[in-house]
Design a protein around this nucleic acid. Structure first.
Length: 638
RNA sequence: GCCAGCGUAGCUCAGACGGCAGAGCAACUGAUUUGUAAUCAGUGGGUCGGGGGUUCGAUUCCCUUCGCUGGCUCCA
């Protein structure tokens, strides 16, 4: 019969035991693992397994505690199974599809005769609590795919049948707790009772397998944590993130607004927001000129014929707006490249001229589907800090690396952390396979040479070429593409762009499309959340506010205002006959970096006592000293 | 575009069986001359997002449309 074999806890081989076949939980017990009730699953010889599983050979065990990343993942996944069971008990005829764990929680997609609503959530939660209290074990069994298909078909669970068919595996595993059985790889927590803290957060529609031509399912989202305290902390973090929300902060700080009567996805910039944009744009122009870019500017609408030539009409028409002028069809630009192509082609170019780097703060319009619009982060009109680099093929690598450095330098100014992704050829695209291969390799090579970590996003490239995307996170941790570097071999060809090389022959330049901030709108959206609206002095639309204590101080206040303003420091005055505490409060709510409070003392001694946004006062100083101080701060972009 | 939720004064929000629409802050007027996060008093302010329907009567019920939010899909 079964012979004895060795088991031990990872890292403690000397404390191992010789045993006969036994369950993992028994093994953990025998090996005197602490806090057994906090173990969600176990790693056995490197493989995650249920602790109800059996050990039959020599094993190295590693407990996975519920509050570890892996443990939470398992907990969340199990909670989704509990939710599916609750839904099946509450809504007869409901069909289950998939229910994975995600960041902080889980979801499950259901198909029901009507969409699930938010008001259904409390009922589902209540039922889930009953299931949890019933302390139902999760049990695993394996069977052949055909048996599993038969089982799910008898249950009316067609989606599961489809999943098993697509898996194409010989055998599959099923997990059962109470009345509910699901197709699942596992592992799961030992019992429903292990779920101590969860909350259903929202419902949303989701297409079956993400395909908009297939059924619209009801997705229920929930969050789950190892204990109530962690759940509360998470809810608190969400609350804090909401306070940074640029959709609220923007209008509150009077930066911008949207107006129903203007239309969806259109931003109206108020004076302070327009100033912020201007500061960023000036900064951008300087940084580009410094790096050998030339400023150009093209029109907003160009003939449709030209969009046909470029391939946009063929590939991007659905996102474009068209209009007619004197019987000619025109397209409103969704990208800035066309004029740049014409500029390059306007004369004979020598290899000595390359690379050409054309930079434009170009305002584009794109028809985004109404459901995707979101604050400043997804709009229909936006301005890109766009450039097109035309270079010889052997310059491509250097140019890409140059842009990667550029992006890093700019992101560092704002202390942004970012993630990089390389996107490869999508289904709807133009150009030869060789060119796509060449471009993709060039991007990867540049990334590796710059020692940058990246992920690959298959099939997510632009229609004209592969790209590197730089993603920033908003307050809620959602990722948004900002900078992007895209290779393009097609456009130079379509516009027949050439340069004369050393050999006296015409050669085709390659092109890089790239943005650094991306869209000014989106960047400002992320920026507001990054700083919670409290911009560093160099960015703040209003840098200084002068507050008088009484009317006696107005004369000196006016003098000071003129002096500071004349030094190009953006200054406002509050000379109202109000209590100082009120004026301080209001300036504080406006998140202005410096207040200068002017009372009798300052008037007599002709100086200022700056109050920083932090609430701290700087020592009394002369106006010139203050001007130096803030100018210096701006120069360093602190 | 699809699914769900939402839309009441400049802002934050109450409210109603279908029967004259409410508060705080802000605004305006006056008093107050004030030293680091809200001085006091008075006044004005609303097609209850738009259109249509049901009804004696709709902000409330129904339909439709616009806009916003969260997802799906799509992208800077």
């Amino acid at each position: 019969m079964a012979k004895g074999f060795d088991i031990h806890i990872k890292g403690h081989p000397s404390e191992g035991l010789k045993v006969e076949p036994l369950s993992i939980s028994e093994a953990l017990n025998l090996l005197k693992v602490k806090n057994i009730e906090g173990i969600a699953a176990a790693r056995v010889n490197g493989v995650l397994r249920d602790i109800s599983g059996t050990l039959e050979t020599e094993s190295e065990l590693e407990p996975v505690y519920i509050n570890s990343d892996e443990g939470l993942d398992i907990l969340r996944h199990s909670t989704s199974h509990i939710m599916a069971m609750a839904a099946k008990e509450l809504f007869p005829g409901i069909r289950v599809t998939i229910g994975p764990s995600i960041q902080d929680g889980f979801y499950y997609d259901f198909d029901y005769e009507r969409p699930l609503r938010e008001e259904d959530l409390p009922d589902i939660e209540k039922k889930m609590k009953e299931i949890i209290a019933a302390d139902l074990p999760f049990s695993r069994r394996e069977l052949s795919s055909s048996e599993a298909i038969e089982f799910f078909r008898s249950e009316g669970e067609d989606y599961k049948v489809e999943l098993i068919n697509d898996l194409g595996a010989e055998r599959v595993s099923l997990y059962t707790q109470g009345t509910f059985t699901d197709l699942c790889r596992g592992p799961h927590i030992p019992s429903t009772k292990m779920v101590k803290a969860f909350h259903l957060t929202k419902v949303a529609g989701a297409y079956w397998r993400g395909d908009e031509n297939r059924a619209m399912l009801s997705r229920v989202y929930g969050i789950a944590f190892a204990d109530r305290k962690s759940l509360q902390q998470h809810l608190h973090r969400l609350e804090e993130a909401r306070k940074r929300n640029h959709v609220k902060l923007g209008p509150q700080l009077d930066l911008f607004n949207t107006y129903d009567e203007v239309g969806a996805g259109m931003i109206v910039w108020h004076p302070k927001g327009a100033m912020l944009r201007h500061i960023l744009e000036e900064f951008e122009i300087q940084e580009h000129v410094k790096r050998g870019y030339e400023l150009v500017k093209g029109p907003t609408i160009l003939k449709t014929e030209l969009w046909k030539k470029s391939g946009h009409f063929e590939n991007y028409r659905d996102n474009m707006y068209f209009t007619t002028i004197d019987d000619n069809s025109y397209g409103i630009k969704p990208m800035n490249c066309l004029s740049h192509m014409l500029i390059y082609g306007s004369k004979i170019r020598s290899y000595r001229d390359l690379p050409k780097r054309y930079f434009e703060l170009g305002t584009v319009h794109r028809h985004e589907r109404s459901g995707v619009l979101h604050g400043l982060l997804r709009v229909r009109e936006f301005t890109q800090d766009d450039a097109h680099i035309l270079c010889a093929p052997d310059q491509l690598n250097g140019e890409i690396k140059g842009v990667l450095d550029f992006v890093k330098e700019i992101m560092d100014v704002f202390n942004f952390e970012y993630e990089l992704e390389i996107s490869t050829r999508p289904e709807k695209s133009i150009g030869t396979d060789e060119d796509w291969e060449l471009g993709t390799t060039a991007l990867i090579k540049a990334m590796e040479e710059n020692h940058l970590p990246y992920e690959i996003n298959e099939g997510d490239g632009a229609f004209y070429g592969p790209k590197i995307d730089v993603k920033l996170k908003d307050a809620l941790g959602r990722k948004w593409q900002c900078a992007t570097i895209q290779c393009d071999f097609t456009l130079p060809e379509r516009f027949n762009l050439v340069y004369i090389d050393r050999d006296g022959q015409k050669h085709r330049p390659v092109m890089i499309h790239r943005v650094v901030l991306g869209a000014i709108e989106r960047f400002i959206g992320v920026l507001i959340e990054h700083y919670a609206g409290a911009f560093p002095a160099w960015l703040a639309p209003v840098q200084v506010k002068i507050l008088t204590v009484t009317d006696r101080n107005i004369d000196f206040g006016e003098k000071l205002l003129a002096e500071i303003t004349s030094m190009n420091i953006r200054t406002e005055a509050d000379f109202r006959n109000e209590k100082l505490s009120l004026k301080v409060r209001e300036a504080q709510l406006e998140k202005i970096p410096y207040m200068l409070i002017i009372g009798d003392k300052e008037c007599e001694e002709e100086g200022v006592t700056p109050r920083q946004r932090s609430g701290q006062n700087l020592p009394f100083m002369k106006p010139e000293e203050f001007i130096d101080l803030i100018s210096d701060e701006c120069k360093q972009r602190r």
